[in-house]
Design a protein around this nucleic acid. Structure first.
Lengths: 198, 198
DNA sequence: CTATTTTTGTACCAATCGTTACAATATTAA
DNA sequence: TTAATATTGTAACGATTGGTACAAAAATAG
């Protein structure tokens, strides 16, 4: 029942994982197929036989990153704890991502979006899908907050979600480019207090 | 008194302006010296005789972009009008930048920062300088607001400025990657109302 | 076993990369 | 006019780009 022919000497998903780090560190234009071969250990033959092109491998990487990233963030936002703590945990999660892994580079989807979304429909599509889901999850938090009174604002849940979303994305951009933890702390505090009160 | 030798057939600053658009559209890694020669009309000889390297030209471009950008934004933030309108105008200015020039690509400094700040001290330095000045200008607005009562919050001016700054930068990233005007409007509304009240 | 199928590594492709070399050109100083 | 100097366009540099060709290798089906 196994298929005929010489078997692969690697696992598809673990190659995607390694390629993810390469794209993450260097960007799409900034990394070569040779870089990808070096890091994954695959030869050109295997790489192209499996993925067809650098761009298709990039797509698989972004899909995988999106899949794991949205799940992690949704879990934080749906945790059975106080709403403010959920949003705070999301900030802290991102802070770790952005400051701890030195050879990676912030949020891969933001990097991809900024570098390519405008000239690459595939990137724009995955990015939009990710944001749509993230925004929905945040909006649910805001709705719950308005209902329970944990948030006492005159704004709609959608407006509050939009505010949080943009602040969260600005936060991530500034984390990477500024490397200024004090600023990051101020953003977290300022954003949460503007939603929940000081 | 003019210097000896064959005179230049172009103006330095106008070449930097053209190169700016090229880097803006394609990114640093994504544009070649040939692209730069084609767009500016200069030959390789002139380009390298004048700027020395692609990287140095990029630096000149970013310095110039920073210079004009910070001035434009400071003017909007110091205008003698209601504070909320100043911040609103800043959003509207960015909205125009991000949606109207189709062949450019959002904010060049954000693009540069995301693509290169972590691996390029020059980019990181200019980016930080820009943010520092922009944050100061926003902070002055918040201070004034707290003093006059236009802003009635328990937060410090610095926290409010950090919140606005991050939201503003997230706004710009989302503008370019999502191309969703409705979302942009929600962000503007949500951010301003969270500072000034609904 | 043999035939078939798939993956592997290597050699190679034309095109492009950032950069340099350099002679021709165009100016000023003397 | 001549010497000195700076800019120009063109040709070329070795290295690298994304991608292909293809034979050797390794598995299964019969």
């Amino acid at each position: 029942m196994t298929k005929r022919g010489r078997p692969r000497e690697f696992e598809y998903s673990s190659i995607v994982d390694v390629a993810m780090k390469t794209f993450w560190k260097r960007g799409y234009e900034g990394c070569s197929t040779q870089d990808l071969c070096n890091d994954t250990g695959l030869g050109k033959g295997s790489l192209y036989n499996t993925f067809g092109s650098k761009h298709e491998l990039y797509k698989q990487v972004l899909e995988r990153y999106h899949e794991f990233g949205i799940k992690a963030q949704q879990e934080l936002l749906n945790a059975p704890i106080a709403l403010k703590d959920r949003l705070s945990n999301l900030f802290e999660w991102a802070l770790k991502e952005d400051f701890e892994n030195i050879d990676q580079n912030g949020c891969l989807l933001i990097n991809a979006g900024v570098e390519r979304a405008k000239n690459d429909v595939m990137v724009q599509e995955i990015f939009s899908r990710h944001i749509e889901l993230l925004k929905q999850a945040i909006e649910k938090v805001m709705e719950e907050g308005l209902q329970t009174g944990e948030i006492s604002k005159k704004q709609t849940a959608e407006e509050l979600a939009s505010l949080f979303l943009s602040s969260y994305y600005g936060f991530r951009v500034l984390n990477v480019s500024m490397q200024n933890r004090l600023l990051s702390e101020q953003i977290m505090k300022g954003t949460l207090e503007s939603i929940f009160g000081a």
